[in-house]
Design a protein around this nucleic acid. Structure first.
Lengths: 294, 294
DNA sequence: ACCAAAATGGAATGAATTTTCCAGAATTGC
DNA sequence: GCAATTCTGGAAAATTCATTCCATTTTGGT
C-alpha cells in the first residue's frame, strides 16, 4: 500500500464540512506536532468557541500562538484560519433558527439575478420556499399553536381579516375553516365596508388577523375594534414590533423570505393549514369527550 | 414619577443579554428615528443573522448605512456595534443544540395520524409542502413556463379565474400581477356575476384559469367563453385529463400532495410567484429593447 | 554530542473592518 | 415659512485582525 498519499500537506483538498474536518483531525492526530495536537484537541473539544472570536483570542484560549492556528489550517489544506473557521460558523447556523444567511449564500452561488430563465427562477423560488418552510418550525413555539387553537375552538365564529397580500392567506383560512365546518367570516372589504363588517364582531367570536409590512390601516382598525370589545385576537405578522402585536392575545411572527423582491406566502399558508387541521382534531376530541363518541 | 431616567442616551448602561436588549428595543422603538427603527426591526426579526457577518454585510441586508448600525449600538449604550454583536453570538451559542433534535423527532413521529399535537402537525405539513415543492420542479417543463410568460407578456390584460380552493392562488395572481403593473382582473364571482364578468373578456386579453378536482362549473364556463373568443388560455390544474386542459393554450399540471385530507396550495403559489416575476423580467427586457432603457 | 530538519513564537506587514467626523438633507418647533 | 436641531450617509481615520516572514528553539538521527 502506498502511504505517500496520506502525507497530505498542502496538496490535498480541504474538508468542506465540519464533520469531515473532525474526522480528518482524528485520523491525522497522531502524526501532528505537539502544538498542532494542542490545537486539534481544542478544535474537537470546543467547536462552539471557534465560530466567533478572532485568532488571537482563540489562540490564547487554546494556549498556543496565533500563527500556530494558521499553520494548522494550512496543514489541513485551507488557505488560512479564516477559511477553516467558516465551517464552524456554518455548522452553528445550520443548527440555529436563522436561515436568511443561507438564502444569501445560496443566492450568491446562484449567480446574477436579473437575466435568468423562468426555469431558473422557478428553481430559486422552490429553494427559497423550502428554506422558509424549514425555518418555520423553529419560529412557531408549540404553546402558541396550542393557545391559538384553544381560542379558535372556543369561539362561536371566527372573523378573518387580511387585505392585499394578506388577503390570500385570509381567503384560505376562510375556505379551510368552512371546510371543517366552523363558522368563518372573511372581512373582505367588499364595497369598502370593512368597518361595517368589523362591526359585526361579537363577544364570543375570535378574530384572526394577518398583516405584514406595510401594515394596512384596514386590518389595524378592525383589530382595534375587536380589542375594544374584548374579543380574543390571533395575529399573524412579521415582527414583534408590528402594530397588531400589542393588541393580540396570541402572536405568530413568521420569518419573511424574500426572493427577487417578492415575499413568500408559503409559511403563512402552511401555518394556516396546520391551525385548521389542528383545530379540526381538537374540536373532534372535545365532541367525543362530551359524551358524543361519533 | 421622574421620567428623565428614561431618556437614556449614553449615560445608562447597556443591556447585557439579548432578551434584555430586545425588550429595550421594543420599549424605545417609538422614539427612534426612521433609520434606527429600520435597524431595530432588523435586529428583532433576524437575530440569527447578526451574529456573524461584518457591519458592512449586515448593514446591506438591513438596508442601512454601516454607521447607522454603530449609532444604533451607541444609542443603546454600547461602545460600538461590535460590543452589541456579542450578545447575538452568545445567544446563538446557547440556543443551538435543540433545533435539529426537534426536526428529527417531528420527522420520526410522522405518519402516526390521529391524536397529534399541533406542533407535530405543523411539522408534517412542513414536510409535505417541502416534498411537494421538490417535485414541482420536475413537473414544470421550461418550455411551458416560457410559453405561458409569452402569452402573459403579449396580453393587454389578464383575466384570472379560480373559485373555492383555487380562489386563493387566483387572488394571489391578481395581487402579484398588479404589483408588477400588469392589468389583472379577478373573476371573483361577487354577486354571482361570474358570467357577466367573463363576458368582459376581450380578444387581446389572456385568461389564467386555476381548477382542481372537483372541477368547478364556474371556471369551466368562463374558460369556455374565452375559448370561443379565441383568447389564449393558461390553465393550472391537476391532470391533463382535466376538462379545462383541452381548451387551454398552455397547461400546467401540478402534483398534488395531500396530508390529512388537505391538499397543499404551496406548489401552485410557488408557480404563481415564478410566473409573475418571470413575466416582470420579460416585460422589462422587452421595454429596454424597444429603445426605452428605463 | 553534533548536525540537519522541523517546529515554534515574535514581530511586521498588509488587508479588512469598525468607528469617527463632517457636510448636506430632513425634520421639528416657533 | 424660517431657523435650529436632529438625522443621514459618504469618506477618511483608526483600530483590529489574519497572515507571512524570520530568527530561535526544539527534535530526531547518527
Amino acid at each position: 500500500m502506498e502511504r505517500d498519499e496520506n502525507q497530505m500537506t498542502e496538496s490535498m483538498q480541504a474538508p468542506q464540512t465540519l464533520s469531515d474536518l473532525q474526522n480528518a483531525i482524528t485520523e491525522r492526530y497522531s502524526e501532528l506536532s505537539k502544538r498542532l495536537r494542542q490545537v486539534a484537541r481544542y478544535l474537537i473539544d470546543h467547536p462552539g468557541d471557534i465560530a466567533f472570536g478572532t485568532v488571537t483570542v482563540i489562540a490564547q484560549d487554546a494556549g498556543v500562538h496565533p500563527s500556530t492556528l494558521v499553520r494548522f489550517a494550512n496543514a489541513f489544506g485551507y488557505s488560512g484560519f479564516s477559511e477553516m473557521q467558516t465551517l464552524f460558523q456554518q455548522n452553528l447556523l445550520r443548527e440555529s433558527p436563522s436561515y436568511t444567511e443561507r438564502i444569501r449564500i445560496a443566492r450568491e452561488t446562484l449567480g446574477d439575478p436579473g437575466s435568468q430563465s423562468p426555469d431558473q427562477l422557478l428553481g430559486e423560488f422552490i429553494h427559497a420556499d423550502t428554506l422558509a418552510l424549514q425555518s418555520l418550525q423553529s419560529h412557531i413555539p408549540a404553546e402558541v399553536l396550542n393557545e391559538a387553537i384553544d381560542i379558535l375552538a372556543n369561539a362561536e365564529a371566527t372573523q378573518i381579516i387580511g387585505v392585499r397580500r394578506s388577503f390570500v392567506p385570509a381567503a384560505y383560512f376562510a375556505y379551510a375553516l368552512r371546510h371543517i365546518e366552523r363558522r368563518a367570516y372573511l372581512i373582505d372589504n367588499v364595497g369598502a365596508m370593512h368597518k361595517e363588517q368589523a362591526g359585526t364582531i361579537q363577544k364570543n367570536d375570535a378574530v384572526l388577523a394577518i398583516s405584514f409590512r406595510p401594515y394596512a390601516s384596514e386590518t389595524d382598525e378592525a383589530v382595534r375594534i375587536a380589542h375594544e370589545r374584548g374579543v380574543p385576537i390571533i395575529v399573524i405578522t412579521d415582527s414583534r414590533l408590528s402594530p397588531l402585536a400589542k393588541l393580540a392575545s396570541v402572536v405568530f411572527t413568521l420569518p419573511d423570505s424574500e426572493v427577487h423582491g417578492f415575499r413568500s406566502l408559503t409559511p403563512t399558508l402552511c401555518l394556516a393549514q396546520s391551525l385548521s387541521i389542528g383545530l379540526a382534531y381538537r374540536v373532534d376530541k372535545n365532541r367525543s369527550m362530551d359524551g358524543n363518541p361519533a
